[in-house]
């Protein structure tokens, strides 16, 4: 049954980043200062060497989720081209969250690396 609900589920499946990874990337981006949604998307794309393409359908829900959780706060400001835009900014809990997510991510990626390269020893890595 092609319901709205079905469509939405399909859309969410297209999120290519691991759950939580996008949040971490957004927080990481905001470490360099306040930025609007478009800017964040551009920064992630540029920072990853055009590898990571952030869908707006994931970016904006993520931003609003982070704001609701209190990890970022927002304010309306004029951009460099005098365009009024909503700027997101890292909060103190957001910084703590970033630290903990970062260390978790390091553990996770190290674990994945080990799994994917079973022959290699730790010393060699």
């Amino acid at each position: 049954m092609p319901t709205a609900m079905g469509k939405r589920e399909g859309y969410e499946n297209r999120i290519e980043l691991l759950q939580g990874t996008l949040d971490m990337l957004i927080l990481q981006t905001l470490r360099w200062g306040p930025q609007h949604g478009y800017g964040i998307g551009q920064a992630i794309r540029a920072g990853s060497g055009e590898v990571l393409q952030v869908e707006t359908g994931s970016l904006y829900p993520a931003l609003h989720r982070l704001e609701k959780q209190g990890w970022v706060k927002s304010e309306w400001k004029a951009s460099e081209h005098n365009q009024r835009a909503k700027y997101y900014q890292l909060t103190a809990p957001g910084k703590r969250q970033l630290t903990s997510e970062h260390s978790r991510w390091k553990q996770l990626s190290a674990a994945i690396v080990r799994l994917m390269n079973p022959g290699e020893t730790e010393g060699e890595a």
């Binding site: 609007h36 478009y38 707006t56 835009a85």
Partner: peptide, 13 residues
């Protein structure tokens, strides 16, 4: 605000 935010995104893009 959400509408304006998206509007701003489109304008900047």
């Amino acid at each position: 605000e959400l509408e304006q935010e998206i509007q701003a995104h489109l304008a900047m893009a």
